[in-house]
């Protein structure tokens, strides 16, 4: 579904992504992990063109998404993106946050969008909070609304950029629970996360990144029991010590 071919990205002299060639299959749940500064977030942000790439090719369903003439808005409407910092719109209620894109992009009438937004909030367990403004919600609730909002365009792909890193520990579980149920419904997901429990239980595959390269790709089983690369072994040892 997603094909990366020799993708390179530079920030000035800094080589952020080095010759990344990989694929993500339909219905696959992929977890990308690695130490900070390894290029995980940069990589996931190139998948919906929040970041440009300097060379190589990224294709989704066979279409080069970084090519000239690609309708970037149409592309993004088909890819849900969940941010570390939630980024809910503070001047809109939870429900309005989930209705904005479908209504504005004319995918649904107001009534349809409203019904769908209620159903999505129900799905993330927050139907009762539909009238609340973001600042009245806890971090975990905000992130669940953000997931509902990202789902509102019915995207076939969901990208998660460290969705639980800004949360208090007791709220991590509720967000991971929502992601887990999405995975069970067959959503194609790319998740940058440090939650190794989630990676072990839910991921179909894991990419381990460091210094802009994918050093190891493995099933959770392989990755957690027999990590091949020295950096991956080090990373997992550090995690266990935490």
């Amino acid at each position: 579904m997603i094909h990366l071919d020799k993708v390179n990205k530079f920030y000035g002299d800094y080589h952020a992504l080095v010759d990344i060639s990989e694929q993500v299959a339909k219905n696959e749940v992929l977890v990308v992990c690695g130490p900070s500064g390894s290029g995980k977030s940069t990589l996931i942000r190139t998948l919906n063109r929040l970041e440009d790439i300097d060379s190589g090719r990224i294709a989704i369903d066979g279409r080069d998404i970084h090519a000239k003439g690609v309708d970037v808005n149409l592309l993004r409407a088909g890819i849900g993106f969940v941010f570390q910092s939630f980024n809910l719109f503070p001047h809109l209620t939870a429900l309005e946050n989930c209705m904005l894109a479908p209504v504005q992009l004319k995918r649904a009438s107001r009534q349809e969008a409203r019904a769908q937004a209620m159903q999505l909030l129900e799905q993330v367990g927050l139907a009762h909070k539909h009238d609340a403004y973001p600042n009245a919600l806890s971090g975990g609730q905000q992130q669940r609304v953000a997931i509902a909002r990202a789902l509102a365009m019915r995207p076939p792909i969901m990208l998660f950029d460290e969705p639980t890193s800004a949360l208090d520990p007791e709220m991590v579980g509720e967000v991971l629970g929502v992601m887990r149920s999405l995975a069970q419904q067959g959503m194609t997901m790319v998740c940058v996360t440090h939650e190794m429990g989630f990676a072990r239980d839910v991921a179909d595959r894991i990419w381990f990144m460091a210094e802009g390269k994918i050093l190891e790709k493995a099933t959770p089983e392989e990755f957690f029991t027999r990590p091949q690369h020295r950096r991956a072994q080090q990373f997992l040892a550090d995690r266990r010590r935490d």
Partner: peptide, 27 residues
Amino acid sequence: LPKGQFESARSLGLSYPQALRLVVLPQ
């Protein structure tokens, strides 16, 4: 305004003018 506001509006598929009008300017 935090950069994330623009980014999340754009990531939903809203155009630059839409993001401006619906998300950025009201705030």
